[in-house]
Design a protein around this nucleic acid. Structure first.
Lengths: 217, 217
DNA sequence: CCTGCTGTGTAACATTTGTCACAAACTTGC
DNA sequence: GCAAGTTTGTGACAAATGTTACACAGCAGG
């Protein structure tokens, strides 16, 4: 594939999803970014990995989660087109190991920005530095919300929050989820989730079907 | 107090605790920072507050915690001299409301950097932008550790982690803590903490006294 | 030394969450 | 339409945590 083709494709994507960037920044990025595709279920990051670039998501959905030694998972938040992976920025700038996992939930595309560019971008382009700070800020806030949930709330409230969140992410009241998936994301067990969902159905908050949960609140 | 006096005092503090800053940055900051003192137990930040400046701690210890509607607390991490409050940076840059609480654990001093300076500092001084990113990174990591603890670990493991952390912060194996304080920080109840501490004492991990816990591991 | 306050110990019980076991419902491929 | 796999429902029980209630120990001030 010719470099010019790739170059203009990147430019298009940047303009579409990162319209807040000043034109010179877009040009700069288009010169140096490459596009990377991920299949559904493919891992974008795994604990212990080093980064040589920062990722800007331009298509698909990426789940960011925590994994412990025993392989237990815990869902933290989700990224879509227009989002950047804050962790990859942090780790990239510091050349540190990542301690989190990321997985594509559907076929996804990301732009890879070489970390060698970071200094120049941060000091040279105000919209970039705003973008980076804003990325941190919003991930931090999301993480704080996660802490709130597990620190202060009971399982049923957490499920409620989870469903609301999923509804927002999928733009639909019909969620294609199994009880097991929810249990995995919340580091709980399937039976507990089933039990509580059943109670919520009795209270008229959801309608349950095989592979679907309809949110009614 | 003469401005020159204040100015040179700020400069001293910056050199002492933020020695990584380049000299021109220190001068710049010294010109515009003011010193603010906090008494023990005084609140530095409360939910819903707006920031007009970023805080650099130069003396004392500041506890950063989360509070819910019912007044329950949950300890997140602690700052000391040389640390910056990441949250005040985030909220300051975005002119957003803070959603966390900060309290001085002992008489403390902070330098207040006006947010109006942020743009200039970020783009003009590489050590500043490194510092800001590193501040985010380390707070983020700490927050991840917090998430791990409450998501994956049981109460006794969490107490163990808490005590290790306190030991590190106080540079001593003798911790001046009541069971109630620990319970508050972990959003649990005093009885549970007493019970588990007693078990740990039986296993030889700690020695318990009134107002003191001696860590033996 | 008595009084009151704060901190700790502990038993009994309630509630929440996790685990095990198994059945039933639904889905898919042949 | 049958077999095999996946998903859900549910009861019984275990374990962890939270709650209530109360005794008592240590400390401070008069």
């Amino acid at each position: 594939m010719g470099t010019t083709i790739q170059h203009s494709r990147v430019q298009q994507l940047l303009e579409a999803y990162f319209g807040q960037f000043e034109p010179e920044l877009i040009n700069k990025l288009a010169e140096h970014c490459i596009i990377r595709d991920f299949e559904a279920d493919q891992q974008l990051m795994r604990p212990g990995q080093y980064f040589k670039s920062t990722m800007l998501i331009v298509e698909g959905a990426v789940k960011i989660y925590r994994e412990d030694q025993d392989g237990n998972e815990f869902f933290m938040y989700q990224l879509g087109a227009g989002d950047a992976c804050a962790l990859s920025m942090i780790c990239a700038t510091r050349n540190e190991q990542s301690q989190i996992s990321a997985k594509a939930l559907e076929p996804s595309k990301a732009l890879l920005v070489p970390i060698a560019l970071m200094d120049e971008l941060m000091t040279g382009y105000k919209t970039w530095y705003y973008f980076v700070l804003e990325t941190y800020r919003s991930r931090f806030e999301e993480l704080l919300e996660v802490v709130d949930n597990i620190a202060f709330k009971s399982m049923d409230e957490r499920i409620e929050f989870y469903l609301k969140n999923q509804r927002k992410l999928s733009h639909s009241d019909e969620l294609a989820l199994t009880h097991q998936q929810i249990a995995t994301d919340m580091n709980s067990s399937r039976e507990v989730v089933s039990r509580l969902l059943k109670k919520m159905e009795q209270r008229g908050m959801v309608r349950l079907g095989r592979n679907t949960i309809t949110v009614l609140f």
